[in-house]
Amino acid sequence: MKFVAFERNKQGTGASRRLRNSGKAPGIVYGGEGQPQLIELDHNALWHALKKEVFHSSILEMELAGKTSKVLLRDVQYHPYKPQVVHIDFQRVDANTKLHMKVPLHYKNAEESQAVKLEHCLVNPVVNELDISCLPADLPEFIEVDLSGLKKGMSLHLNDIQLPKGVKAVTHGKPNPVIVSVVTAAAEESAEAATAGAEGAAAAAPAAEAKAAPAAKGGAKDAKAAAPAKDAKKK
């Protein structure tokens, strides 16, 4: 993806404010062999570019002063309540230096899995992007994850997904974190609880009837024993 930047000579809060008021966005490009350089971009074009996923996760071609260089988006600062970019940072890319980036995960085929299609479960993505390390030439725009093999009670871990060639995941703490979990839908849980309750009630009914039967027999005997006593009293 290409974009055009322009050299910026003035810096400071006042200069940046005037720049933004004129429809421009202040920024900086750093890293590589060159010195940090102040730049400015057309705000409207930048705003629309930032809405695209590829602008955040891939190597960009920046045209500056008639020369094209490869850069990565590193930071964007937005106005607290206005739809405005306050400042943007780019980093130059060295073909021989590994990058540390966050790349989005694209999930597919969840609706074709046994968990969703037959067992009426919900697929819950725990992670939507992955920290990776790779050379610029190996940087993927996104990583695709196939969920067609999911079943009820399963969890998909980092080691279960196929990473592109030359790409290594960077984990923080847990070596094999959960990427996707399968959870039972609330309606399904209620139905299972109702079924279990009905089965329990059905099992308890014969026991209750058996318990009530001796009591009834005992009551009948007591009634018969009490009848002669009443007759004797009357006489």
Rank of each mutant, 00 (worst) to 15 (best):
M1E: 08
K2M: 12
K2L: 13
F3Q: 09
A5R: 11
F6V: 10
F6H: 14
E7M: 13
E7T: 10
R8M: 05
T13R: 15
S16L: 03
S16D: 05
R17F: 07
R20Q: 02
N21R: 14
N21Y: 08
N21S: 10
G23K: 04
K24T: 11
A25R: 04
G27A: 04
V29I: 12
V29P: 05
V29S: 01
Y30A: 04
G32D: 01
E33F: 09
E33S: 15
G34D: 14
Q35F: 07
P36H: 07
Q37A: 15
Q37T: 08
E40Q: 15
N44E: 13
L50N: 04
F55R: 14
H56K: 08
L60S: 02
E61G: 05
M62K: 10
M62Q: 05
M62T: 09
K67W: 07
K67Y: 08
K67G: 01
V71S: 05
V71A: 05
L72A: 09
R74S: 14
Y78G: 02
P80I: 04
Q84M: 04
I88L: 07
Q91D: 10
R92F: 04
D94Q: 09
A95T: 13
N96C: 12
K98D: 08
H100R: 08
M101W: 06
K102G: 06
L105S: 09
H106V: 13
K108Y: 13
K108F: 15
K108H: 13
A110H: 09
Q114H: 11
Q114T: 15
A115F: 06
A115V: 11
V116C: 00
V116E: 08
V116H: 03
K117P: 02
L118M: 13
L118H: 12
H120V: 13
H120L: 12
H120G: 10
C121G: 08
L122C: 02
V126W: 01
V126P: 00
V127H: 10
N128V: 07
N128G: 11
N128K: 14
E129Q: 14
E129N: 10
D131T: 11
S133R: 01
C134A: 04
C134T: 00
P136Y: 02
A137E: 02
A137G: 10
A137K: 12
D138Y: 07
L139V: 02
P140E: 02
I143Q: 06
E144K: 09
D146R: 00
L147Y: 09
L147N: 04
L150N: 03
L150R: 04
L150S: 03
K151R: 13
G153N: 01
M154N: 15
S155C: 14
H157N: 08
L158M: 06
D160L: 00
G166R: 00
V170G: 01
H172P: 02
P175N: 01
N176Y: 01
V178G: 05
I179M: 04
I179A: 08
S181R: 11
A185M: 01
E188C: 03
E189I: 12
S190R: 15
A194K: 15
T195W: 11
A198V: 15
E199A: 15
A203R: 14
A204G: 00
A205T: 05
P206Y: 09
A207E: 08
A208K: 12
E209C: 02
A212V: 04
P214C: 03
A216K: 07
K217N: 09
G218I: 05
A220G: 06
A223I: 05
A223T: 04
A223E: 01
A223K: 12
K224E: 03
A225K: 12
A227S: 10
A227Q: 12
A232C: 03
